[in-house]
Structures are given as structure tokens and as C-alpha cells.
Write a protein that binds this DNA or RNA. Sequence first.
DNA 1: ATCTGCATGTAATGGGTTACATGATTTC
DNA 2: GAAATCATGTAACCCATTACATGCAGAT
Lengths: 177, 177
Amino acid sequence: MPKKRILPYIILGILDQNPGSTGKFITNQFKNEIGEFWKASHSQIYPELKKMVEDDWIKQTSDSNNEKEKYYHLTNLGKEKLNSWIDIPINALPVVEDLFSLKLFFIQDPNDPRISTLVNKQLNLLEKQLDHLNDREKILFDTQEKRNKNYGYYLILERAISRLDNQIKWLKTIKQR
Amino acid sequence: MPKKRILPYIILGILDQNPGSTGKFITNQFKNEIGEFWKASHSQIYPELKKMVEDDWIKQTSDSNNEKEKYYHLTNLGKEKLNSWIDIPINALPVVEDLFSLKLFFIQDPNDPRISTLVNKQLNLLEKQLDHLNDREKILFDTQEKRNKNYGYYLILERAISRLDNQIKWLKTIKQR
DNA sequence: ATCTGCATGTAATGGGTTACATGATTTC
DNA sequence: GAAATCATGTAACCCATTACATGCAGAT
């Protein structure tokens, strides 16, 4: 018995916000919007879409002008599934896989030179990502109106930024001990 | 080609810090110490230990007093593997799976009552965990000497606490918007 | 008309979770 | 010495990643 399936619910959520999305669009949502909180690649998404059509969670249409693209929409069943999923209480903490912290964990000596190598490299990585997210926020949510229109997205983008910021600040404190 | 194997390296790191550990002990390390940054269950760990013995990364001994327990130690090859792994630069950001943020993402209306339900529940969850980690820190690292002896562990425990703290503070700001 | 790229799809391989199973050791 | 617990081990099942594959669309 494998771990609980989350992917179809995320796809439902994306389709709820963007009716008529293509598989490609959904894939991109994972890269850009959701990537901070969940990962999925196109080779997971396409088969999942197929299965969701079979289960009548979504329906597929196509456009006579563009044969290769397929468009997906929620069914009523899909809407129900999405809403009841959102209402299921969350009992588990977020799961983090953080190689950096692991490696740090294995270095016991405070004077080990590998610490500062690791830290500097990680700082670099995180600062780039922070810049990227700050840019996105400026573009997407420069007005209150935009924020209110996609409130959930606004919130988690803020969350991602705050998280990165905290991480960077913490890393900088290590360097000064 | 599947995703990159991390587990054996983590086990190497645990055995480096705790020579002669049992599989059970390693399992508990994942629950207590490492759980904030990586997950693994005993049903992964035992087969992995077997494989690592076959590959001569670790060796296994036993105790005539207790037939059921097996004790593991690094080999020289294992030490090399561990050290070269630590030196591999990290190019990927930490991976987070956060159901809470996902669900939030799908709620677009700032006045949707489900937001505060979600937030309150999550706050509760995180605060419990923060208390738990704060307790651990007090017990394990109340003196500078203890900190210096297991510096890496001290750092990531601090990291975990800081992260939780940031998350909680951020959640509280949502409630006031 | 060919080339390039894009959207979709599939396969191979190994990872990971949950549940079940076994034998030793402690407990009462 | 029976019962409960503990440490270890195994199996079924699905998940996820990477690489490969196909066919249409647009560009030149």
C-alpha cells in the first residue's frame, strides 16, 4: 500500500482556476507557481490526466484548429472531489528534503572548513531563487486588486519568499559564529 | 533512470557519528534527529544495510549476548564514499511538500472562511512541533561544550526551529489581513 | 518542403509506503 | 512459561524520475 495520492487533487485545483488548460500548461504551473510546494513532471501529468478522464473527474475537449492540444475541464464530480479534499484536515507536517542540512549534520567539528564552503554555495543558490521570486511578486501582484483576485496564490508566493528570506538570514548567522 | 539515491549516504553519516549502531537505532535517528530534513522507514533501512554490507561500505558484527541485534560500522571504503558525497556541490533547492500551502493556493477568495480554518489548524500543528524542538534543544545543547561536540546537529536543530518560527509568525500575519 | 520545436505520450528502472511476518527477549 | 514487546525482515503495490518516442505546427 503506497503513499497517498495528491497529484490528481492538485490538477483539479489547477483546472478549477484555469478551465480549459492543456497538459503543457499544467506542467508549467508546477514549474512556476506550485514548484515551491510540490513537484511533478509532465510524464506524471499526462497519464494522470488520462486516468482522471476515465474516472470522470475531468473532461477533455479539443480544438479543430489545433489537433495536438487537448483541453481539460472539471466535471461536477471533479469539483466535489476538489472541495472535499480541501476540507480534509491536515495532520502531518510539511515534508522537507534538504541535502544541505543533511550534509551539515554530518560535520561535527565547528572548525571544519567544509562548513563555510557549503554555506557560501547554499547562500548563492538561495539568493538567486529569492531574486527570482521577488521579481515574480512585483510583476504579478503590484496592485491590491491583483492580490485579491488570486489571493491563495499571492499568499503562498509571500510564504515562499518569507521562507527563503529566513533561510538566508539564518545562513548568514552561521558565518559569524 | 530513477531519482538519485541519498539514503545510503545518510546511513553512512549516521554510522560515522555512531559506530556500532543497530538498524533500529538508525531508524530512530530518522524519527528524531534527521526527520526534519529527510524521511526513511525501517522497511527501507534494513534492506539498504544489507546491500551496503554486500558493497563493502559497512561491516556487520554481532554480540553473543544478544543474537537478534546487529551492529554496523563504516569500512574505509564507506568513509571515502561519505566524504566524497559531502563534497559534491548541491545544485538543487530543498524540496518541500506542503499540503497546507497547496490547499491555500486553491482558495482564491480572500473572504473564504476555509482560510481561517486551515490557518488555525496549521498553527496548532506547528506550535506543537516547535515546543517539541525547543525542548530537545534545551536538553541536548544547554552548554557550549555540547554544542561544539555535535556542531552539525546543533546547527540543523537551530535551523529547524528557526524555520518553524518563521512559518508560525507568517501564519499569524495572515490572520490579521 | 524541410527543419525545428512543441505538446503529448511511453518505457525502464528503481524508490518508498503500508502491511504483514518472524524470531528473540523481556515482563509479569 | 505465557504474553507482550522489540528488532529485524519481507511483500505488494504504486510513485516518480529520466530517457526515449511520436506526430503536428510554424518558420524559413
